[in-house]
Amino acid sequence: MTQTVTTEEELREFVKFSATVTGFSEFDLWGTGQAEAYYETVVAQQGPDALRRAISSDLSAVPSDPVVKSIIKLWYVGVWYGPELTGRVDVAAWTAPGRSGAKPAVPDDSRPEESLSGQAAPGQEQAGEDRAEAEERKPPFVVSPDAYTEGLLWRAIGAHPAGAKAPGYGSWANPPTLENH
């Protein structure tokens, strides 16, 4: 990943926006130590214009913005998933054997969206742009060594990442306690 030059103001705007869409305070987000890494990831993967559009978007439209969804996932689990495609997703490509060691969810010959020849079934054609986008899509990746342990997911469910943070060994034997956020 290439380094992105960040101005303090852009980073602050990113964190302020992220606080709005994640439901956590800016203080909590800064406390993860991941703000700059996450900002740089979004800019490197989507470009500064896409980030500016997301930040300046109408908050009522946020749930439908794929870049915003990716930013939310990034803060919660520390993984960059990239925006979902707007058209039909190529299920076969994402459930194929060898993809993270997973086997297909359903046998190849029983997928309703594809015929046995591998062509899209009638009414399920994938637009050329979406197909090109699907072929260029990068697999998800963990943004930094600390991203997993600093994910907001753990605070949201009142738990700790197993084996990575206090209280340590055996902590998963007790039910989580929920905090007010």
Rank of each mutant, 00 (worst) to 15 (best):
E114M: 12
S144L: 04
R111Q: 09
E113A: 01
Q119N: 10
S144A: 13
A134E: 12
R111V: 04
A121W: 00
S144V: 05
P139G: 09
E125G: 10
G101K: 09
G118E: 06
A102G: 10
G118P: 09
A121H: 00
A134M: 13
P145W: 06
E113G: 04
G101C: 08
L153Y: 13
G101Y: 10
A134F: 06
V143L: 01
K103F: 00
S117V: 02
P145V: 09
E150K: 15
P107Y: 02
E135W: 10
E135A: 13
G128P: 13
E136V: 04
A120N: 07
G158H: 00
G151W: 00
Y148T: 03
A159T: 11
A156S: 12
D108Y: 04
L116K: 11
S115P: 00
K103S: 03
A159M: 06
E129W: 14
A156Q: 14
V143N: 00
R137C: 08
K103T: 02
G101M: 08
A134V: 04
V106W: 09
G118Q: 09
I157L: 06
H160P: 01
H160T: 13
E125T: 11
K138P: 05
G98H: 05
F141G: 13
R155Q: 12
Q119M: 10
P122T: 02
R131Y: 07
K103V: 02
Y148P: 01
P122I: 01
R131M: 05
V142G: 03
S117T: 14
Q124G: 02
G158W: 01
R131I: 08
G128L: 15
Y148W: 13
Q124L: 07
E114T: 09
Y148V: 14
G151Y: 05
R155Y: 03
E135P: 06
E135K: 12
R99C: 05
A120K: 07
I157N: 01
L152Y: 10
P104K: 05
H160F: 10
W154S: 07
Q124I: 00
E150T: 13
V142R: 15
A102L: 12
R111M: 08
S144P: 01
S117K: 11
A121E: 06
T149H: 08
S100W: 15
Q119P: 02
A102N: 12
D130F: 05
P145Y: 09
S144W: 05
P140N: 06
T149K: 15
G151Q: 04
R155F: 03
E113K: 00
A156Y: 14
V142E: 14
E136N: 13
P97V: 01
F141E: 14
A159P: 04
A159W: 08
V142N: 07
E133S: 07
I157M: 04
A127S: 15
